[in-house]
Computed example of a mutant assay.
Amino acid sequence: MVFHPPVQIVAKAGDAGKYKVGLPAWNMIMRGFMSGAYIAMGAGLATVTSTGVADFLGPGFAALVRGAVFPVGLIITILTGAELFTGDAMLAPMAAFIHKISWMQVLNLWVWVYIGNFIGSVVYAYIMAYGPYTSWDAAGAVTVNAFGMTALGIAKGKVSYVGGAAMWSLFLKAIGCNWLVNLAVLLGICADDAVGKFFGIWFPIMAFVSSGLEHSIANMMFIPAGIFVNGLLGPEHASYVANLSWVTMWTNNVILVTIGNIVGGLLFVGVIYWVAFRKEIAALK
């Protein structure tokens, strides 16, 4: 396995960011759509495989199961060239530091990829909610199964951040999440072969999910899936969650998580690694 030294990893991250900001908007949206769906695939798998685990093995092991399977989304994203906003929160600024591209180009990439990620995540959330999370009889009556109830519970928890202390906790979880996600991106860059990339990506992503941190794009699947399931239950159902909506998705979670993810990727990985290796990077030119 070919292993690139740290300075080359940082330089390659800047090169990747420069390439990404040069894509046309339609391509950013398309690649963002793909990555949003891929991250949602990992989220859906994590929901299904962790269902019922806590009842027998405890909440820690259930968290480990979720973390063990969730990385499939970022692995597919990186190996197939899709675009993920949270990775671009580090890669695009790294390009600005190294190649002196404009910050308007960085923002342009972020906006279009974010939109694409959202669309892809919601589309796959709908597939899961009306597919594996439910059962339908011949008359068209729906029953939300155990997987769907797990999805509802996850979504309920993610819109439960109310008040200053809770929001601060959410913000910190978002920072920690994208710190790990972008370390996974760098480890994916450090290897040239698929196996090396797989393991480099897998461990940090497993760590963030198992630790209970918050990822804006993953939440664009977790929360909409819960919203769809909640709608199928209806307000007359005992498990119906009254404050679970498209509004609370943003106000109680995704907006602040997005900001925290930017801080985690841009500051704790992008800026720190640029400052640490800028002299060595200059020597490579």
Rank of each mutant, 00 (worst) to 15 (best):
T150D: 07
L186Y: 09
A129F: 00
I39F: 08
V123P: 05
V7S: 09
I227C: 10
W246M: 06
H4E: 15
T248R: 03
F3W: 15
W274L: 02
F3E: 15
T77A: 03
K100F: 03
G73F: 07
F147H: 03
C190L: 13
I223Q: 04
L180A: 01
D137K: 09
A68F: 14
F3Y: 15
M167Y: 11
V142R: 05
L186S: 05
G81Q: 04
A155G: 05
Q8N: 13
A16M: 15
K285N: 13
V123D: 02
G60Y: 00
L213R: 03
L186V: 00
M1D: 11
G17T: 09
V257L: 08
G131E: 01
L180G: 00
F268N: 06
K100I: 05
F33I: 12
W179M: 05
M220D: 02
G42P: 13
L172Y: 08
W246N: 04
L74G: 01
L107I: 12
N219D: 10
G234M: 07
H215G: 09
G212A: 09
V275S: 11
G42K: 09
R278E: 11
T47M: 11
L64T: 13
A276Y: 09
G116C: 07
T49H: 12
A151D: 02
T248Q: 03
S239F: 08
T77C: 12
V72H: 08
A89H: 09
V209L: 05
G131N: 05
W26H: 14
A155I: 04
S216M: 11
N182K: 03
G44S: 12
M28G: 07
A82W: 01
L244C: 04
S160I: 05
L180S: 05
L183S: 12
S102A: 03
N27T: 12
I154H: 08
I281N: 04
W274G: 04
K20E: 10
I29Y: 06
D137H: 13
V247Y: 12
C177V: 01
Y126C: 14
G153I: 00
A139E: 12
V53G: 01
N117L: 05
A282K: 14
V263W: 02
G157D: 09
A191I: 11
P204I: 03
A68Q: 08
I101C: 07
I175K: 00
F208D: 00
R66L: 11
A11N: 12
F198R: 09
W179T: 01
Y133I: 04
V185D: 00
T251R: 07
F85K: 11
Y273A: 01
T258N: 10
D137E: 08
A146E: 14
A184P: 08
I217V: 15
L74N: 01
F277Q: 13
A43P: 04
G212F: 07
L57M: 13
L109C: 15
L107D: 06
F147N: 04
M34W: 08
L172C: 13
F56D: 09
T49W: 13
A155N: 08
F3G: 10
N108D: 15
R66K: 14
M149F: 14
N27E: 15
F61W: 11
A92G: 07
D15Q: 12
G163H: 06
